[in-house]
């Protein structure tokens, strides 16, 4: 066991971990931040995406020990300070960009990373960016629409309610 220290959602966090402890396990099991989900073991589904030092990372494919000293942000810190939904979260609700909710935390974290580097992505850019986030419920239509809406684009001409 070694001790790791990092900043998670703006607060100092520490814990004793084994070498093999994944960042996702540390967040879920030691910090009780269960919003970060684990949907696969081959680093493909993206349900576990968090931000480490401002960049999207798959928390199931990073050791907790590697996050020593890092700034980690999870889905639990994505709402506005007053607890209301952020622009991206609100767009997901407004455009029905989620169903079962399991992939949703990773989708929101990836969407936030995308819009930071590309504030007005095209449909194609959104779809390509989501290569590492698998959703089984929505068929992606409303996720793509929500992300484009969150970027301030008019999505009213995209088919469907």
């Amino acid at each position: 066991m070694t001790q790791v220290k990092m900043t998670v959602n703006g607060k100092a966090a520490s814990g004793d971990v084994e070498g093999r402890t994944l960042l996702s396990s540390f967040l879920r099991e030691q910090l009780n931040l269960t919003g970060t989900h684990v949907g696969c073991d081959t680093s493909q589904c993206g349900a576990c995406v968090v931000h480490v030092n401002g960049e999207a990372v798959k928390a199931c494919t990073m050791l907790a020990a590697e996050a020593q000293g890092a700034e980690v942000t999870t889905i639990e810190a994505m709402a506005n300070a007053d607890g209301s939904l952020s622009v991206i979260q609100q767009a997901f609700q407004d455009h029905h960009g989620l169903q079962c909710g399991f992939c949703t935390p990773g989708m929101v974290m990836s969407a936030a990373a995308l819009l930071k580097e590309n504030p007005k992505p095209t449909e194609r850019e959104v779809r390509v960016y989501l290569e590492g986030n698998i959703c089984r419920c929505t068929g992606y239509h409303n996720i793509v629409k929500a992300i484009m809406a969150a970027s301030g684009q008019d999505v009213s001409r995209i088919a469907a309610e």
């Binding site: 999207a56 990372v57 798959k58 494919t61 990836s110 590492g132």
Partner: peptide
Amino acid sequence: IGDPAVRNR
């Protein structure tokens, strides 16, 4: 290569 999160690591 991979996807955006993979490319960051």
